[in-house]
């Protein structure tokens, strides 16, 4: 990922306004398929999200989320199979506890919690995917750029 290309993209926002960059970490079996369904169903949703596909939410290490923020993400979306539907039986249950703690930690450190969204989107929920993406994009757009992390990294 190059910062030059990224900054060009950012400045290309509609009417010169701020367009957030959202990184979405999704599981292969449910949410990615759900996003695919949204596409094949020709549902429209905002284009701010960049999707990173992983086998399972259980594979999503909080380090991925921090790296996304450090590298300029304004918001992060994590999405996988509904409880009980995990392709690997229990990956999302483990992930749920991990993200519970991680989210508490980030909130305690002072991150705006609207920048970090978790959701369950099944392979059949193309419509829910578009709603989740639109919702997190709108929220982060309202918050503006992730200045906290940018300052942290600029002082680096």
């Amino acid at each position: 990922m190059s910062t030059q290309t990224e900054s060009k993209h950012e400045s290309a926002g509609a009417a010169g306004g701020f367009e957030p960059k959202i990184t979405a970490f999704v599981c292969n079996w449910c949410t990615y398929a759900g996003a695919d369904l949204a596409g094949t169903s020709r549902l429209k949703y905002q284009s701010n999200v960049r999707v990173v596909k992983l086998p399972c939410t259980g594979r999503i290490d909080p380090h991925f989320i921090i790296k996304a923020f450090e590298n300029g993400a304004d918001g992060v979306l994590v999405s996988g199979c509904h409880p009980g539907d995990c392709h690997y039986t229990s990956g999302n249950y483990h992930a749920r506890r991990r993200f519970t703690m991680f989210r508490a930690m980030m909130e305690f450190l002072g991150l705006d919690m609207d920048r970090l969204q978790f959701s369950w989107v099944s392979a059949a929920e193309g419509g829910k995917w578009t709603k989740v993406v639109d919702d997190v994009t709108n929220k982060v757009r309202n918050l503006g750029p992730n200045t906290k992390y940018r300052e942290l990294c600029e002082n680096d």
């Binding site: 409880p83 009980g84 229990s90 249950y93 483990h94 749920r96 506890r97 991990r98 993200f99 519970t100 703690m101 989210r103 969204q117 978790f118 959701s119 369950w120 989740v132």
Partner: peptide, 29 residues
């Protein structure tokens, strides 16, 4: 969230290596 105190019961399952299907998840939509 999990009603657990570390190091009190040698036989208790560790909270971050276990789960319950009905764990709280009020932050996930």
């Amino acid at each position: 969230k999990y009603g657990y105190e570390a190091g009190c019961d040698p036989d208790a399952p560790a909270p971050m290596c276990n789960f319950k299907p009905d764990d709280k998840e009020d932050f996930i939509r």
